[in-house]
Computed example of a mutant assay.
Amino acid sequence: MTGWTADEMPRLDGKTVVVTGANSGLGFEATRAFVAKGATVVMACRSVERGTNAAAEIRADAGGVDGALDVRECDLASLDSVASFAEGATDDYDAVDVLCNNAGVMAIPRRETVDGFETQLGVNHLGHFALTCRLFPLLAAADGIEDGGADEVGSEPAERSGSGDARVVTQSSGAHERGEMDFSDLNWEESYDKWGAYGRSKLANLLFAYELQRRIDATDDAVGVRSVACHPGYAATNLQMRTAEESGTPLAAAVMRVANSVFGQDAATGALPLLYAATADVNGGAYVEPDGVLNMRGSPTVGRSNDASYDLDDARRLWDYSAEATGVDLSL
């Protein structure tokens, strides 16, 4: 066990961090931790109102914060919104030191994004794919984070590019283990299983994170960006309650409340793998997860995701599909 806590994060004065879904749950707690260390946090939120309220709560709880909070609209279910957010960030910032691809939806009834993608794949993966590609020049321009905390290395990553690299941190889930990449029906148009769709989107997060690192490593020039994946374990957040509410069954909400209280860890602890991936000394391509039983709770450590997440053919096929579907690709 590492026993690592957010107190071990380095100072982040002068650093810029983008967090999607920053107004609630894991994103809210990560934002609170980043800004406490002096970072400027760009809170990329679907609802500016909720983001503004969250920023006010962080300021009030801390009695003032060391860093700055910048709330901006970014609806991952709309590629136009993603593009507008990235354009605004590019206009107003010279660099981004950390991008946290955190926001997501879980096990909802089938619906589609405004661009026609199944929502879980569209929000959890495709929106973040497009955002990462559009913000990559800002990441490449950053000085990055000076590594803090324990020195750990991943089991499958490529070689570390060097100390102080910028980070792309993509939030996955242990549910990736039930995901399957069916490229004949990625958007579940023929049949739909809400948990299968969630698992697929979380597997897609990992395929993307690892493929991004492989592409960075394959460049002739030093890019200075690391791509790292993580999962929070079982963190009791409003994500589970939204899933229960979407089911339309009162019993589901009651069961979820009991499960959260018995099995879940609080959101601040659930955010630790993301914070560790963003600031500790980990290789590009690492997978950070809790170190407890079944990796459901505990302190962050570097582990290994399932074999399917390292499938090179699936990763390349998914990348090609994502670039075509979003109209955005990464030129390294």
Rank of each mutant, 00 (worst) to 15 (best):
Y310L: 04
A158Y: 11
A315W: 00
D91M: 13
Q213P: 01
A6E: 14
R257G: 12
C45L: 06
R178W: 15
S247W: 01
R110H: 11
M256W: 00
E29H: 15
T170V: 15
V17M: 14
L79G: 03
A56M: 05
D307W: 06
F85S: 07
G264R: 03
Y210F: 15
K202M: 03
T31A: 15
A89D: 05
D66W: 10
Q171K: 13
C45N: 11
G127N: 06
G179L: 08
P250E: 01
E180G: 10
T5F: 09
P290M: 00
A166I: 00
S191C: 02
G179H: 07
A77S: 13
S47Y: 01
D220Q: 14
V169Y: 04
V228C: 07
E246N: 08
P157R: 00
Y287F: 14
R297I: 06
S163F: 11
S201K: 00
A44C: 07
T249Q: 15
A278C: 01
T170C: 12
L69W: 01
M296N: 09
V228L: 02
V114Y: 12
C100F: 12
L312Y: 12
V65G: 03
F183G: 07
I108N: 04
S161C: 10
L239S: 02
G14M: 14
A277F: 10
G264I: 06
H231M: 10
A30L: 11
R226H: 14
D185S: 12
V228G: 08
D97W: 05
V168P: 02
K15N: 12
G148H: 07
Y192L: 05
A259Y: 05
A286P: 03
G3D: 15
Y192F: 14
G303E: 07
T269G: 00
Q213F: 05
H231D: 07
M181K: 07
V17T: 10
C74G: 05
G164L: 02
F28V: 13
V228N: 03
Y310H: 11
R160I: 05
F183Q: 13
Q120S: 07
D314G: 00
A6Q: 13
E189H: 11
K202A: 02
T16S: 14
D147W: 11
T243W: 01
G21T: 10
G122A: 09
V48R: 11
A6V: 14
D61L: 15
T326E: 06
K15P: 10
G174Y: 09
D70T: 08
Q171H: 15
K194A: 13
T326H: 08
G264T: 09
L69V: 10
A308Y: 00
V293Y: 13
D143H: 13
I108M: 14
G179C: 08
W195P: 01
V282Q: 02
H125T: 00
T269C: 07
A254R: 09
R167Y: 07
D311K: 01
K202I: 00
V18G: 08
G162K: 06
R226K: 14
G27R: 06
V255Y: 03
Y210Q: 05
R50W: 02
F129G: 00
D151W: 11
A252D: 09
T40P: 04
A277Y: 08
A62R: 09
N283A: 13
G122F: 03
W4Q: 12
A103W: 00
D61P: 03
E29Y: 08
G21Q: 12
T113F: 01
R297L: 09
Y321P: 01
M9R: 03
G51I: 02
L294D: 09
T113V: 10
S81R: 06
D311T: 01
S184Y: 13
R200L: 06
